[in-house]
């Protein structure tokens, strides 16, 4: 089936515009029969990107599998805010073991389902960036390498938010955290560090790797659905802004996630068997400053003693992403002129 690109510029925004679509093309979230896999009443902060991401992804997985999903969760915000007894928010079978072992626990669940003849039930494991790129990394690499039948979703908010906003290996350069203070000649997190987990996942040659943000619901849901069509190890990396840790307004979560993509700082793409198969091109390119200046974790780059030199280094990272993934194509450039 060829996909007809739909642009919603007529509403004057990047709103998803469900009303303009046929009912078949509307998002899972807009359906009355969505699962509400993680239900309301949980204790996430206002504007939490992770709560949105988890609900979007799991509801899409539930629709894709006709409700045959078991979730495994690493320790972290998502686990903590969703389960203090007796108010569990999970309406699907859900298992939390430890911080660093969600990929291996998911392997065990998948193996048990297979041996029990229930391979129609699918396993989704989820963790924050700490549980993915740091403490869970060994187990994740093992799960990838064995090509176990697990969709692993990283909700990346670029730091240890549950413990009070400390640096992780997913914290970007210059970002202020509780352990990368905004002081000294190179304030915030240092440049030249961190792990690019989607590319590391691709290096395992697993069948499917994708990135997404909570700003593009259609794209996120489509990637989950694609992931559920495939057997074996799959990895979805979702950028989920954190108002608490990023120092951003609660009502800016979606906006900031969109700017991360539109600036080129967070490349949105998918890859099959180690090769990039599609990229979400930038629709209206913005300088990184627009993204950074909405977040107090970058406050030391602006204001009284601005650091345009550091902003320029971050811009160079975005430019490099754009070149690496081909995030800006000629058509996009011309559209930019037209809008």
């Amino acid at each position: 089936m060829t996909r007809q690109p739909v642009h919603f510029y007529q509403v004057g925004s990047f709103a998803v515009g469900n009303r303009l679509l046929s009912s078949d093309d509307r998002t899972v979230q807009s359906q009355r029969e969505r699962t509400n896999s993680i239900d309301s009443g949980h204790r996430a902060c206002q504007g939490c990107g992770e709560a949105l991401g988890a609900r979007y992804a799991l509801d899409a997985a539930m629709r894709a599998t006709n409700g045959h999903v078991v979730a495994v969760n690493a320790t972290g915000c998502l686990e903590v805010f969703s389960t203090p007894y007796p108010e569990t928010s999970w309406r699907i079978p859900w298992l939390h073991s430890l911080f660093g072992n969600a990929p291996a626990v998911a392997t065990g669940v998948a193996a048990a389902l297979r041996v029990k003849g229930k391979s129609d039930v699918r396993v989704v494991a989820q963790a924050g960036d700490g549980g993915t790129v740091d403490i869970g990394f060994g187990a994740l690499s093992g799960m990838f390498e064995r090509n176990d039948d697990v969709l692993f979703i990283c909700y990346d908010n670029e730091g240890y938010m549950n413990t009070g906003v400390q640096r992780s290996a997913a914290t970007p350069p210059a970002a202020r955290t509780a352990t990368t203070d905004a002081v000294g000649p190179e304030p915030g997190n240092v440049f030249g560090t961190g792990k690019d987990l989607p590319r590391i996942a691709m290096a395992h040659d697993i069948p499917y790797v994708a990135t997404a943000t909570v700003a593009d619901l259609h794209d996120l849901e489509r990637k989950v659905e694609r992931a559920m069509e495939i057997r074996g190890a799959r990895y979805l990396h979702v950028l989920v802004p954190c108002p608490l840790g990023w120092g951003s307004a609660s009502n800016d979560t979606i906006h900031i996630a969109r700017l991360a993509k539109e600036s080129g700082l967070f490349p949105v793409f998918e890859a099959e068997n180690g090769t990039v198969t599609s990229v979400s091109t930038i629709r209206r390119r913005v300088p990184v400053e627009q993204y950074l200046s909405l977040q107090r974790r970058y406050g030391h780059l602006f204001g009284k003693s601005p650091r345009p030199d550091i902003v320029a280094r971050i811009q160079a990272i975005a430019d490099n992403n754009i070149a690496r993934y081909g995030l800006v194509d000629d058509a996009t450039e011309s559209m930019e002129v037209n809008t």
């Binding site: 078991v70 495994v72 298992l95 073991s97 430890l98 660093g100 072992n101 990929p103 291996a104 626990v105 998911a106 392997t107 065990g108 669940v109 998948a110 193996a111 048990a112 389902l113 041996v115 029990k116 060994g138 187990a139 690499s141 093992g142 390498e145």
Partner: peptide, 18 residues
């Protein structure tokens, strides 16, 4: 890939009824 994973796999499997 490690004993930590070995026990974790056992946890997942046991919680799934195996």
């Amino acid at each position: 890939e490690s004993e930590f994973a070995a026990m974790s796999v056992a946890i997942g499997a046991s919680a799934t009824g195996a």
